[in-house]
Write a protein that binds this DNA or RNA. Structure first.
Lengths: 235, 235
DNA sequence: GTCTATACAACGATAGAC
DNA sequence: GTCTATCGTTGTATAGAC
């Protein structure tokens, strides 16, 4: 988990530095040191406010108060309010794209491939929780093109699962009539990890426990022989 | 399906009449005939606008244009903008409560019980699609009390599934280590029917096909003996 | 690079004529 | 029961001092 974070540069100063360099062209503040510091404050505050009462309901005056940066000051970092949401979606999509690209390892056994995809994605969601939640809930507010790209990305993730399923079918390990529906169901369950965090907290379910449950359920649906025994073996 | 609609009065004039009588005390317009007619126009227009760009982003001027009712006129039907959202959530929750209450039939075989719950809920979502989507996406904008009630309702639905699962376990029909997680997963899959309508449309999946898929997957997870054969038998 | 001050459009909401 | 006209507020965004 910690290794995963470091491997993808998903936290700390290096991460925010990468976010900064992704759109420094749109920013007036050129000094990286101060720009990175404040950009993190702005985006973090946006998550706090938007994930509590919605991005549209959050005003830039709220954001100014929360960050301690004046209204005028904010506009040195963002082009407009909508631009802020757009940037956040863009960063997350870029990162997911990058991780998804690496998640494809056709040499692995189908079961291990599924495990890699599920664990990889749930790690991602766990680490970038507010990013996922924000993009899920505020997608409507972005322009049509960005909405389409987000949908395409989700379909690409589903395809990743479908490919692994079909590889298992052709190897005689799995039986599945509707791989598309099964993949969509797994994606839905993964998204629950950020959408329904309150429920997992209430039932005291850990991330590892949940990932294992998703994989195990999936293998049962695939009528995988070692489904029951795989619980202890894979850890 | 049609019988289901009629049985629960989920469509047409009788439905909107019921909605009207639920909040006629809050409305200035007392003539039922005209009140019901316009209330339907207002709520339908709210769904169109809010489900396209979000409730907060929708202005009452938008709503006025869409309904053909003047700004001043709108306030004869709603107390405030937030009141409108609150009313919508209240109506849906009342109806779900009513249907859920009837879905408990302890005499049924556990498998039939699960099928009744899944089919009942997906019928509900299908018929009241915009209501569900609106309440899911705009819950953050409502007051804490209403948010809590919505969460309680979802937990109550999960419990319905857990009860049926446990009844099957004690009868020796099912095997399940974590009924709570399985129930949450089924709830998530049902919610997809309104959350990800675009995906099912893209893959040309019908409601009946999807309901069957959810039930079948669930039975496999429960290691139900007749899982494979149940597909043809239950229709 | 950050602030204060301000522009001005759009918002929710109401009063009062009809 | 519905409209027009208008109130006061709040929103995003910018100009210009420092």
């Amino acid at each position: 988990m910690e290794a995963f974070k470091r491997a993808w540069t998903l936290e700390g100063e290096p991460f925010w530095s990468a976010v900064f360099f992704m759109h420094q062209d749109k920013m007036q503040v050129k000094n990286p040191k101060v720009a990175i510091f404040n950009l993190e404050k702005i985006i973090t505050a946006t998550f706090k406010l938007a994930n509590a009462k919605g991005f549209q309901a959050m005003s830039l005056r709220d954001l100014s108060r929360e960050t301690g940066i004046s209204m005028g000051g904010l506009y040195a970092y963002i082009g407009s309010k909508n631009d802020l949401a757009s940037v956040i979606e863009g960063v997350l999509r870029t990162y997911i794209d990058r991780v998804i690209g690496e998640l494809v390892d056709e040499d692995l056994d189908p079961v291990d491939r599924l495990q890699a995809i599920i664990c990889g994605e749930i790690f991602m969601i766990q680490i970038m929780n507010p990013w996922y939640y924000f993009c899920y809930m505020e997608l409507k507010g972005l322009d049509k093109e960005q909405q389409q790209q987000a949908m395409d990305l989700e379909l690409r993730f589903d395809s990743l699962l479908v490919d692994a399923i079909q590889s298992g079918i052709s190897k005689g390990q799995f039986v599945c009539e509707k791989p598309t529906l099964l993949a969509a169901s797994v994606t839905a369950q993964l998204q629950q990890w950020h959408l329904k965090h309150w429920k997992f907290k209430l039932h005291e379910v850990s991330m590892e426990e949940y990932a294992e449950h998703i994989l195990e359920s999936m293998l049962r649906c695939l009528q995988y022989e070692g489904a029951a025994r795989s619980i202890g073996r894979r850890k």
